[in-house]
Design a protein around this nucleic acid. Structure first.
Length: 292
DNA sequence: GAGTCGTGGGC
DNA sequence: TGCCCAAGACT
């Protein structure tokens, strides 16, 4: 196999975007906590939307201990319209766990990171690698797509699995600092060049050897699940209810004033109940509010 | 393991 | 314009 590693890493050293969490000053100021917060926000959310929220978040809660002391309502409020608001609850929970179990220090050990709320295979290794500089395979959707194309010759990756970690591990340079660069490089290529739609193969450092490009960019069978339509969905109803609660906070909203014109009232009630079950809302009497 | 979970931008 | 996609994790 041609040297994917050195080509990608060389490209990255020249082409890497200047992102907040890549700056030395960011690490000096916020340490692993800053990286952890950025990774939570980046889960399924584009970089451009994360940046302003991240800066506001860290200005308000610069340490795990500071955030652990905040109320759930404040956390959900500060999360604003970032989407997937359960991430705000999990980040808050993780801050409490770090404060109570790790003396306020974000753990460096991958298993300890995996034990925290809201942290899975990707985020645990991203923190260990991009904050602590350790050697682990970091695999996100960008990396999976790059490897699917460059190595397997497929337009789209198979659904995520543990094999992804093993494949990335097999490619990882033995040198620790080089392994960090390669992890970042694979993600960066997928984010800026080897994109899901309209990839810029003419700018790709792997174009000479990419199995997919060499094969003529075949439109291979795509077994990815389609995202359910959003219009009229439970998710939309939940989103609207929570937006209402954020706008009204700290005041509660009378239940009769929660989406009164929603066409499907059982669906509306289901949304309210599920928000309460998730801990994103609280009902006291005949009113709904952000959780205390 | 498949379903579920927000929100907004780009094509 | 509607559809696709985005540094995933949990149940």
């Amino acid at each position: 196999m041609p040297d994917i590693v050195s080509r990608l890493s060389d490209w990255y050293r020249d082409a890497a975007r200047d992102l907040p969490w890549r700056r030395a000053a960011f690490h000096d100021e916020f340490g692993a906590w800053g990286v952890l917060v950025s990774e939570f926000m980046l889960q399924q959310t584009p970089v451009s939307r994360v940046i302003p929220h991240l800066e506001a978040w860290l200005a308000r809660w610069p340490t795990p201990e500071a955030m652990a002391a905040a109320s759930t309502a404040d956390v959900v409020q500060q999360w604003a319209n970032l989407g997937y608001p359960r991430r705000a609850l999990w980040l808050h929970r993780a801050a409490v766990e770090i404060t109570e179990r790790h003396d306020g220090i974000v753990p460096r050990d991958v298993d300890a990171l995996l034990a925290l709320s809201g942290i899975g295979d990707y985020t645990a290794r991203a923190v260990a690698v991009f904050s602590y500089g350790d050697r682990h395979p970091v695999v996100d959707t960008n990396t999976r797509r790059v490897l699917a194309r460059a190595i397997d010759g497929r337009a789209h990756p198979a659904p995520p699995s543990r094999r992804d970690l093993a494949l990335m591990e097999s490619l990882l340079p033995a040198s620790v600092p080089e392994s960090v660069v390669f992890n970042a490089a694979a993600m960066e290529l997928g984010a800026t060049v080897c994109t899901a739609r309209a990839p810029r193969c003419e700018q790709c450092p792997l174009s000479a050897s990419c199995a997919w490009l060499v094969a003529g960019r075949p439109d291979t069978g795509d077994d990815r699940r389609r995202q359910a339509s959003y219009e009229g969905s439970d998710r939309q109803a939940r989103g609207l209810v929570l937006r209402l609660l954020r706008q009204a906070a700290p005041d509660p909203v009378p239940l009769v004033a929660v989406l009164p014109d929603w066409p499907d009232s059982p669906q509306r009630d289901r949304a309210i109940d599920s928000l309460i079950a998730d801990g994103l809302a609280e009902a006291d009497g005949e009113a709904l509010s952000l959780p205390r």
